[in-house]
């Protein structure tokens, strides 16, 4: 057994998500990612099932494993009880653990996600907040969201939220003791180390590409080469 296959075999998502694929392609037929990307979950599951270490390593370096939206629409449709979306989760985790995620454009985006979401979890206690989903980064949210963000205190008070306040209610300020508990949980369970490895690999990749880290962050958040997922540009 190879190194990557060993990592996968220790992953609950991998063990639960892959039984025995018969290549029927139902997962691809219902997949929202396959609808709009050159992406085929059936092929990924088939590749992984063959167990060829070098082919799996290529997957971990590729854009391919990053197209899935983890909607799990594949799960109830598979006649063999496989979940390609769970196999993808295991491949992505292995890609990060081996540092191979920085080899692909879509994989490098993990840095932008880590900076936005993971930092928000530990900073304010929630994945999303009106202070993070700012209109400059979300023009698609439209003028009403712009209006809300410009008048947060008044709008949120009007709809009975407790924006940045103490006590219970929507959007309350999460107290320091609770945030410290979250941070301790991240430390004890490997969440902090996982996030630090995304940071470290990204910093090294940015240096290799001759970018400072802010430039790299902007690039990973905005750049889309239109690649087809197999290392080629369309």
């Amino acid at each position: 057994m190879g190194r990557i296959i060993d990592i996968l075999n220790q992953d609950t998502h991998f063990c639960d998500g892959l039984n025995s694929c018969m290549n029927c392609g139902v997962c691809t037929a219902v997949c929202p990612a396959a609808e709009f990307y050159n992406y085929d979950p059936r092929v990924i599951v088939d590749t992984v099932q063959r167990g060829d270490e070098s082919e799996i390593e290529e997957l971990l370096k590729s854009n391919t494993i990053w197209y899935c939206g983890e909607c799990m629409s594949c799960k109830p449709r598979c006649p063999r009880g496989n979940t390609p979306g769970e196999v993808i989760m295991a491949l992505r985790k292995a890609s990060i653990e081996t540092g191979l995620f920085v080899e692909s454009e879509k994989g490098r985006q993990q840095f932008a996600i880590k900076r936005a979401i993971a930092d928000s979890v530990l900073g304010v206690g929630y994945c999303v907040s009106p202070d993070i989903a700012v209109p400059e980064k979300h023009p698609e949210q439209g003028p009403v969201w712009e209006w809300i963000c410009a008048n947060k205190e008044q709008v949120y008070e009007r709809v009975h939220a407790n924006y940045d306040g103490n006590g219970a209610g929507a959007l309350r300020h999460v107290d320091e003791a609770s945030l410290n508990e979250l941070k301790e949980i991240f430390k004890v369970t490997g969440g902090t180390a996982f996030m630090e490895s995304i940071e470290q690999c990204s910093k090294e990749k940015a240096a290799a590409l001759g970018m400072d880290i802010e430039e790299y962050l902007h690039e990973t958040y905005t750049f889309n080469s239109g690649g087809d997922g197999y290392g080629n540009n369309e």
Partner: peptide, 28 residues
Amino acid sequence: DPKHTTCTGIGYHSDVVPFQTTMTVVAR
């Protein structure tokens, strides 16, 4: 409960938070 926080769900399904961390946050 004012002490409640995120379950980390968006981070978990965007692959920046591992399962063990998410399970333990939910256990809290």
